[in-house]
Design a binder for these strands. Structure first.
Lengths: 142, 142
DNA sequence: TTGACATATTCCCATTACGGCATATATTAA
DNA sequence: TTAATATATGCCGTAATGGGAATATGTCAA
């Protein structure tokens, strides 16, 4: 089974760096007062071939990150926040792994100081992980 | 040029759904008091073949989402928040696209009511986009 | 109708990922 | 040393990508 399709979900859609550039451009235009941007404006902004822009927009639209509206022969694209919100929400579940970093680094420094007072310690693999942890049971909960 | 490498950045790494499952399992273990989890525990938790677990962990480690420490013949994996924080921060730049949804929907409803008072309007493509926007200049800022 | 304009779609290709299976490496135990 | 345990790595086949170029589709203008 190969890699998941880029149109599977917003996570796969924004994995492509160029697609994030498209979203950045749309956000900038929105901040400048143009929440809806025709494809040609994006082509001029990004300086990419038009088919490339259209293809990336199609992927973003399929996963619900952008929305489209027709105006004459143009198609106006805009950001639909719901798609990105799902990613924001998922990553938010891990915020304690970076919010409490200062505390953890401080505790690590204290532990290192205590270890240095008694004897030379083996060099830590990662500062954030040098917290002595109780041996986990071989068969955890599930 | 094919798709970007999964080890290019955290965005590509978490695009794979199974990799997000691994992170969820690590987060759950951490919440249960085991911030560091041996590979075998993850194998038992997820019920996947061991090589598959190791490979996914390798990708997550390469982009800095997880960290490893050796303890005897085991390798203890833990979440390194910095990698996920970069994603959280990027999506946060778009928070106004979902935070102000209520305002936008309300304004849209008012606009629709005004339009209905004068005559039948073309059915909206997307409720959030039905805000009448000034025609954007053909050559925007950049 | 014909042409210009705006955008989407199709085809081709080189590259890469994922899963399965087998095997290599490293560490502890006997 | 040899065996057992814990984990990583290599190889394979299948599937899908993103870019380029050409072309199709749809809309407005003359």
């Amino acid at each position: 089974m190969p890699r998941a399709a880029t149109t599977l979900d917003p996570f796969n859609a924004i994995a492509e760096p160029k697609r994030r550039e498209v979203l950045d451009a749309l956000a900038k235009a929105s901040a400048a007062g143009n929440p809806e941007v025709p494809v040609n404006d994006l082509v001029n902004l990004l300086q990419w071939p038009q088919p490339q822009v259209s293809k990336h927009l199609a992927v973003l639209r399929e996963v619900g990150i952008v929305a489209v509206r027709r105006r004459g022969r143009e198609r106006l694209y805009s950001i639909d926040g719901e798609g990105l919100k799902s990613i924001h929400d998922w990553t938010a579940m891990f915020d304690r792994f970076w919010t409490h970093n200062l505390d953890r680094i401080k505790r690590h420094a204290e532990a290192a100081a205590r270890a240095a007072a008694s004897g030379p310690a083996p060099l830590p693999v990662h500062p954030l992980l040098n917290i002595p942890s109780p041996r986990s049971p071989r068969t955890p909960e599930h």
